[in-house]
Amino acid sequence: MINLLTPEFFFTVIRVTTPILFAAMAAIICSKSGVINIALESIMLTAALTGVLASGFSQNIFIGMVGGILGGMFIAGALAYFSLYLKADIILVGIALNLMAVGGTVFVMFVFTGDRGSTNSIRSLQFPDVNIPLLQDIPVVGTALSGHNILTYLAILSVIGVWFFLSKTTYGLRLRSVGENPDAATSVGIDVRKVKLVALLISGFLGAFGGMYMSMAYLSVFSTNMVAGRGFISLAAASMGQANPFGTLLAASFFGLMESVSYQLQAIGIPAQIVGMVPYVSVIIGLVLYAQYQQSLQKKKTLSKQLKEDPNEA
């Protein structure tokens, strides 16, 4: 029987929302600074592998974390270098990096472990689960909210962190000015390229945690293409949340909810492939509903304004 109102179900929702949430926060930072980061998928995938490799070979979770962060930031840095400094179309570079990451992670995995499917042969470490004192003793609520992986709590903190960074710090102010009017930023001596570089690197940092959650918390191995579109889903979440951290948290939770529902469906015998479609269909439906809502707001906006804000040119 399908049961959606149990604390265990909410526990699952929070669990599967975590990686999307990290990446969606990364997407917000990029979007506020005016860059489209479709390489989030490859950032997550790369970090998932480098985290496992670093922790597996060092047997030290901290070194593993640093390895994951460096992996994610390396991809973000490459995206920044080619798009900002060599002026390549950022979407094309994103596509290229995503392609490279799918094959490249397998290549690197093979070099280091001799495996091609997953890193079963090395013992990776996992981030610990945390039981929150007091909270864990509350019935129902405690079951749903306590006992998650430490990265889950970090993800929630990152929502507040991103909000605080964007709206309270001077660097956040500069970052937003770069996204909204780069010429204005330039005219007061802000180095637009550098700000965008920093934004991309932050997104590499946050995205890396999303990837490490997949391979070092949710599971304890890296397997080929394990991110499975979560980077793209995060982009959808950030755009539905209008790049507002709390709105994005809601959107990401919605996608997490749909993924959890799909697990429940599988449990009652609905074919795996139909269940597998649920998260992706829900993203499309979410995008449509959001776009329709936006359209109703803008219906009266003059066309010449719309032409200038063509989503393609962004």
Partner: peptide, 18 residues
Amino acid sequence: FMQVGSMTVAENVVLGSE
């Protein structure tokens, strides 16, 4: 004009040396 529409006048003036 090199200005950011969503920010206040003061934020625009101090932008760059806040």
